[in-house]
């Protein structure tokens, strides 16, 4: 403890002023100043107008759609993400390397490409869409479509969060539990799940945050219909920026609410990570 404090005062490594200066200047210029301006912009609106706008049916519905769809998608991603991570860490099978390499495709594939492709795949002239139509499930232009797009963009977050934890987890723990007569399910629940829980939560949070603000991959498959409740928040913001009916103040106000939501989530993720780090250090 004492040693640490000493180091704090006299770091002999050079470059403190320069690197800290670059960091703070660039962060302010590119991120903080524009963001704060956007927030201040929404204060040009009176409180009454603000609440009137935020409680408009299409706005509240868009928030409900964004939040619910991204929640459901994040839960689906946690289930499949854990299975994928497990399979990739614990089993050997043909095609494993390819699967591992392609998990991050959603990060590399532009969202607009993902959006139009998923839409066409699940529309009634795409082959998956046609097959699902026959059993009475419509995907394109419904909320189910929004969820599928969010599952697509969110899956790497969960797999890449859980995978390293499973790699470090010694197989001996499970073997011991199994030998002592615990069922596979109990072993998973009592031995493995607590270990991956913090990572899973942080993957969940990242996928959720990405889903709530997502634009490119969602807007094509959603159809953006107010009647069907398939408008998402980012669509509402964007529609206020388009030349026909520019409403910067309205856009800024809705963005502010979305921003607060995102910050709450960022805060939660950091809390979880902090908590997890303390647990593993103890």
């Amino acid at each position: 403890m004492k040693k640490e404090r000493l180091k704090k005062q006299h770091s002999i490594i050079p470059g403190r002023g320069m690197t800290l200066g670059i960091t703070i200047t660039m962060l302010s210029l590119f991120i903080l100043i524009p963001l704060v301006s956007a927030m201040l912009y929404s204060f040009r609106m009176s409180w009454k107008d603000f609440t009137e706008l935020i409680t408009r049916p299409n706005v509240t519905q868009a928030f409900a759609t964004s939040i619910w769809c991204s929640l459901i998608a994040a839960v689906i991603n946690c289930i499949f993400g854990t299975i994928l991570a497990w399979v990739l860490v614990r089993y050997e099978f043909p095609g494993k390397r390819l699967m591992d390499a392609m998990i991050e495709l959603p990060f590399a594939l532009p969202t607009a490409v993902a959006g139009i492709t998923l839409t066409k795949m699940y529309s009634d002239n795409g082959f998956l869409g046609r097959a699902l139509e026959r059993v009475g499930i419509r995907v394109s232009y419904t909320r189910l479509g929004i969820i599928i797009a969010m599952v697509f963009i969110g899956i790497p977050f969960v797999v890449r969060a859980v995978q390293p934890i499973l790699e470090k987890l010694p197989a001996a723990h499970e073997e011991a539990a199994l030998m002592l007569g615990a069922s596979r399910f109990t072993t998973f629940r009592k031995v493995i799940f607590p270990e991956i829980m913090p990572a899973l939560l942080s993957g969940f949070g990242l996928a959720l945050a990405r889903g709530i603000g997502e634009y490119g991959s969602v807007i094509y498959i959603s159809g953006n219909s107010e009647k069907n409740g398939t408008q998402v928040v980012s669509y509402i913001i964007m529609s206020k920026l388009n030349s026909g009916n520019v409403d910067y103040e309205g856009a800024a106000a809705i963005a502010l609410v979305l921003l607060i939501l995102s910050f709450l989530m960022l805060f939660l993720i950091n809390m979880i990570q902090h908590f997890a780090a303390r647990r593993t250090n103890a």
């Binding site: 991120i31 956007a38 945050a209 603000g213 913001i237 964007m238 856009a251 963005a255 989530m265």
Partner: peptide, 12 residues
Amino acid sequence: PFSISPVIAGLA
């Protein structure tokens, strides 16, 4: 920027 909607980035 990781937890903010890209639409907000453009707007900002």
